[in-house]
Each structure stands twice: as structure tokens, then as C-alpha cells.
């Protein structure tokens, strides 16, 4: 499954959750959904805003992890 790992990049850029949420124009609640991997999908526009704010590539914040209990489609 695809996982979002924002913590590393946020630590590198020394950016708090509230600042990042404000920079990319989403609520802190929605950023929390992203950070805890509870989201079902991410819009390209959000990914674009994240990459711009954190000055990184999509690959720096998106990770693929093998599913233990089988793939869910």
C-alpha cells in the first residue's frame, strides 16, 4: 500500500503542522488525516502544494509498503 511520510520532510524543513497546513491551504484536521495515513486518496493539487511547500519530490513523501494481509483494491 502507498503510505505518506510527511514527518521526515517536515523535520528537515523545520516546519510545524499548522504552518504546513496553512501553506498548502488545507485544514489541520485534513493534514492529520494525511499524516496518519487515514486518507483514501490525495489530489494532484494537494501533492503539488506539498512538494512546493516542503521543496521535495513526490517520491520523498510517498512510500510503497508491502501489504501483509493481501492487497485491497
Amino acid at each position: 500500500m502507498i503510505k505518506i511520510d510527511l514527518d521526515v520532510m517536515m523535520a528537515k524543513r523545520k516546519m510545524s503542522s499548522s504552518t504546513l497546513a496553512e501553506k498548502i491551504g488545507i485544514t489541520q484536521a485534513n493534514l492529520s488525516i494525511l499524516k496518519t495515513n487515514k486518507g483514501k486518496a490525495i489530489r494532484f493539487s494537494t501533492l503539488d502544494a506539498l512538494c512546493r511547500a516542503l521543496e521535495c519530490e513526490p517520491g520523498d513523501i510517498l512510500k510503497y509498503e508491502e501489504d501483509n494481509d493481501g492487497a485491497e483494491l
Binding site: I33, L34, K38, G39, K40, A41, I42, R43
Partner: peptide, 8 residues
Amino acid sequence: KQENDLTI
């Protein structure tokens, strides 16, 4: 709706 709500 749930899918839409969880699309950030």
C-alpha cells in the same frame, strides 16, 4: 461521501 471526505 466517505471516499470524498477522505480525499485530501
